[in-house]
Design a protein around this nucleic acid. Structure first.
Length: 236
DNA sequence: CTTCAGATCCGTCAGGTCGA
DNA sequence: TCGACCTGACGGATCTGAAG
């Protein structure tokens, strides 16, 4: 198996394990999946939301578990729920509304690594095809494109060049198609970056909650032990 | 210093969700 | 219904640390 093959194998297995964990919860078995329990906790407290997230699935699982003999959701419905995806922004914002010190994910967040918000359109005469700011320049068959505009604005030189009604020749149509594709790819590239950033933030948030709850749990255990000592007189 | 394996990052595609 | 957006999955590139 190749390096990448192994990597994909691991990734796929992790995903599968997550799914199995959720399903096993529905079967009443115990799991230590902290993140899922955290998310379930969060969802339980905040309620609402039309999008069933993984967290909600876990919530369903827990509800089911507690109800015990209430019956189980049929596998088809479960699959349907599982197939829907969480929005890290929504999840984290819900979490942050639940826990005061947790920062919300902003709709538009300034670059954390000090990347300037705008990068002017320019032809960079080097062979570098990628920079830390996501700029590309032509290398072989790689098309030159730019540029980071304000996220909500249209990229310069990409969309404004021609209106569909003014196109005539097949060449113009092809160019327009190419422009559209480049625009789509650029938007998706930015979206993927943003998605990954949110996901990291979400994971960090969950990890910090785990830490807090572990401390709480420890304190409660100690308190319980203390109360036990007080309430049960020694018999010797 | 070189090699290797695992981790991480990135761009792209596919498909789901949502609002107009 | 459609377009925009979001995110999982994939493959490739690069980084990093351990072992020889």
């Amino acid at each position: 198996m190749s390096k990448c093959g192994r990597k994909k194998y691991i990734k796929t297995n992790l995903r599968q394990m997550t799914m199995e964990t959720i399903e096993s919860q529905q079967d009443g078995s115990v799991t230590d999946s902290v993140a899922e329990r955290e998310s379930a906790d969060m969802q339980t407290q905040t309620g609402q939301n039309s999008i069933p997230t993984l967290a909600q699935v876990a919530t369903i699982a827990e509800t089911d578990e507690s109800a015990d003999s209430e019956g189980v959701i049929d596998s088809h419905k479960r699959r349907e729920i599982l197939s829907r995806r969480p929005s890290y922004r929504k999840i984290l914002n819900e979490l942050s509304s639940d826990v005061p010190g947790v920062p919300k994910i902003e709709e538009e967040k300034s670059e954390e690594e000090g990347t300037p918000p705008n990068i002017a359109t320019m032809a960079v005469p080097t062979s570098i095809y990628q920079t830390s700011t996501g700029q590309y320049t032509a290398t072989g068959d790689m098309p030159t494109y730019q540029i980071r505009a304000p996220t909500t604005a249209l990229p310069q030189g990409v969309v404004m060049a021609a209106s569909p009604g003014s196109l005539h020749s097949p060449q113009q149509l092809a160019e327009e198609a190419t422009r559209k594709r480049e625009l789509r790819l650029m938007k998706n590239r930015e979206a993927a970056k943003e998605c990954r950033r949110r996901k990291k933030e979400y994971v960090k948030c969950l990890e910090s909650r785990v830490a807090v709850l572990e401390v709480q749990n420890k304190k409660l255990i100690e308190e319980l032990e203390t109360l036990k000592d007080i309430c049960s007189p020694k018999t010797d």
